[in-house]
């Protein structure tokens, strides 16, 4: 294994008095599909946005491909592709116009860009929507456009925040296969998800993040071994201290029957 492509040391991020990340330490190697699991509000999105150099951190150390996320922001944005939690796109553009805009800003050669757009549009079956305003597309189609826009420049580092949200099974499968392919090419992939089956089938290593801290990290086999459980769902709930949910269900039932 070569040098890690992402190195994070004692990363802290505060939003005012709220601590979103509380001393994250991790290294991610080239060729890894690194899964980030955690309940809502655990700090996953904040972490991913810092790695993409979209957000500044409070203290700590974060290097991506040897570059500093604060000082070398432009260089990092050139080599990363980021899919946000909800697809944020220009709704008054069409997917063709949006992807051409992204490709042009990323200085992709014209013919290469045209070829890639065609190929991705075909793979995700959105050719018929390519010249319709993004604002009028379904959530899933918008998500596909967002995914294509993050992959179109063939980035070294791919960061996906809940990217499977809204995708139909075929597109989800294509994305999973693509990630596996990219990983084989030595690209680094960080993947945050709530869908534990996806994490199980795609990720080579998983970190469980809870209240801004990594509470467990390792390959799926390592996590299973440590917890003694076979299912990732049980490992996740145990690590986040939410193992026994029956009191919550009982309380809900009582409230609704009153």
């Amino acid at each position: 294994m070569g040098k890690p492509s992402i190195v994070v040391h004692n990363l802290i991020k505060n939003y005012g008095q709220l601590r979103a990340l509380d001393g994250i330490d991790l290294e991610i190697n080239p060729g890894e599909v690194f899964g980030l699991l955690g309940p809502n509000g655990s700090g996953k999105t904040t972490f991913l946005r810092i790695v993409c150099s979209i957000l500044d951190y409070t203290t700590g150390y974060v290097r991506v491909s040897g570059l500093d996320v604060v000082k070398d922001s432009m260089e990092i944005k050139k080599i990363t592709g980021y899919v946000p939690e909800t697809p944020v796109l220009y709704e008054s553009l069409t997917p063709t116009e949006f992807l051409n805009f992204i490709g042009s800003v990323r200085r992709i050669e014209h013919n290469t860009l045209a070829r890639r757009i065609e190929s991705f549009a075909h793979a995700f079956e959105i050719e018929d929507n390519m010249n319709t305003f993004i604002g009028s597309l379904s959530f899933g189609t918008k998500q596909k456009v967002a995914i294509i826009s993050s992959l179109i420049h063939d980035p070294e580092i791919i960061i996906l925040d809940e990217a499977m949200n809204g995708l139909d099974p075929r597109s989800a499968r294509i994305l999973k296969n693509l990630l596996t392919e990219y990983s084989a090419q030595g690209k680094t992939i960080i993947f945050s998800t709530h869908v534990l089956e996806v994490a199980e089938s795609v990720c080579t290593r998983i970190a469980i993040i809870y209240k801004g801290r990594i509470v467990d990290i390792g390959t799926l086999a390592e996590l299973r071994q440590r917890s003694g459980s076979k299912r990732l769902e049980d490992i996740f709930l145990e690590a986040t201290g939410e193992g026994d949910l029956s009191p919550v269900i009982k309380s809900l039932k009582e409230t609704m029957s009153r």
Binding site: E91, S92, T94, T96, N100, H110, L113, A114, I117, E118, A121, E127, D128, N129, M130, N131, T132, F133, G135, S136, L137
Partner: peptide, 15 residues
């Protein structure tokens, strides 16, 4: 979604 037309501006244009 309803204010912007759902109709395609042009059918074949991909770039």
């Amino acid at each position: 979604a309803s204010s912007l037309t759902g109709a395609a501006i042009s059918r074949k244009k991909l770039h």
